[in-house]
């Protein structure tokens, strides 16, 4: 995991030109922006109210009134997918935030101090990695009760060691470099160097990992909601929509198809975006990733 620091040699215009010439990036960006836009629009407007159940309209097939059909409670699937996007994005984003917020300082600290501190932190990391993630998430929600907040915590905890590892590996590659030596000679402390010099140089690495973890977070949230441990009604969530759909696969296939597609498209978009960013900022990664 070595990092090339090519940024200073490139102008912003150059990066942008490269970005919009990159197919992965463009497609990924468009999809991601679309999903975010849908989530934002849902705050202002949805085709119908997702908290009102109209049992009389249950399991209607797609029509001009309900584009994606209705579910077993007569709710509009399109509206639920729109509001569900909000839930998916929020859960995944905060979970990634927790992972970054705690993992990056830990990793940077481990790299800066080295020795026993490094060793101890990395072993704790290994410990968390050793627990099967889904299983642990199930146990966490079994203790604290299911809900969006606890899903965030469960997913967030498993993001910490990921970011700690990436940050540590990135930082380790930077520490021996000359400009760091210069900064140390100038009397700057460990913390200051980490913040001023290390962090900016591993930012792209973290950004790429961030998009990957974001996509994984959306999948994880869907999985947790699917087993009933995610956001609770009346808040729609894509995973629970699939759970509700599964017994009605033959009679109301639209209940399964549209939320499933929403997950696939969102995750696909984020992964493409992550690949694209990696390609643009680190040409060597085009071969590695």
């Amino acid at each position: 995991m070595t990092m090339r620091i090519d940024l200073p040699e490139e102008t912003l215009a150059g990066v942008l030109a490269k970005a919009f010439g990159n197919r992965s990036f463009v497609i990924g960006l468009v999809i991601t922006l679309l999903v975010v836009a849908v989530a934002l629009v849902s705050f202002l407007w949805t085709p119908s109210d997702v908290t009102r159940l109209v049992i009389a309209d249950k399991t209607q097939s797609p029509s001009h009134v309900h584009w994606f059909g209705t579910d077993h409670f007569g709710r509009d699937i399109l509206s639920m997918i729109m509001v569900g996007a909000r839930n998916s994005i929020a859960v995944a984003l905060v979970a990634v935030g927790i992972g970054m917020g705690i993992g990056v300082p830990l990793g940077a600290f481990a790299a800066a101090r080295g020795g026993m501190v490094d060793e101890a932190l990395m072993r704790v990391n290994d410990l968390v990695f050793a627990f099967p993630a889904l299983l642990s998430a199930i146990m966490i929600t079994a203790i604290f009760g299911p809900g969006a907040v606890n899903a965030i915590i469960a997913i967030g905890i498993f993001n910490i060691p990921v970011f700690a590892r990436v940050a540590r590996a990135g930082a380790l590659a930077i520490w021996p470099r000359e400009f760091i030596l210069a900064a140390r000679a100038a009397g700057k402390g460990m913390t200051r160097i980490s913040i001023e010099h290390i962090l900016p140089n591993i930012a792209t690495l973290l950004l790429v990992q961030g998009t990957i973890q974001f996509a994984l977070g959306i999948l994880a949230e869907a999985g947790l909601s699917y087993v009933g441990l995610g956001a609770q009604p009346p808040m729609p969530s894509w995973g629970r929509m699939l759970f509700d759909a599964q017994t009605r696969m033959v009679t109301a296939p639209w209940m399964a198809i549209f939320p499933g597609m929403a997950i696939v498209i969102t995750v696909l978009g984020l992964n493409l975006l992550g690949d694209g960013i990696a390609d643009i900022l680190d040409p060597k990664s085009r071969r590695r990733r």
């Binding site: 996509a215 999948l219 869907a222 999985g223 699917y226 995973g239 699939l242 599964q246 696969m249 399964a256 499933g260 997950i263 696939v264 498209i265 969102t266 995750v267 696909l268 992964n271 493409l272 690949d275």
Partner: peptide
């Protein structure tokens, strides 16, 4: 492959 990574396996299973 990108598509494969993005598909939730329980949905695929159904």
């Amino acid at each position: 492959a990108q598509l494969g990574v993005a598909v939730p396996n329980f949905w695929f299973a159904l």
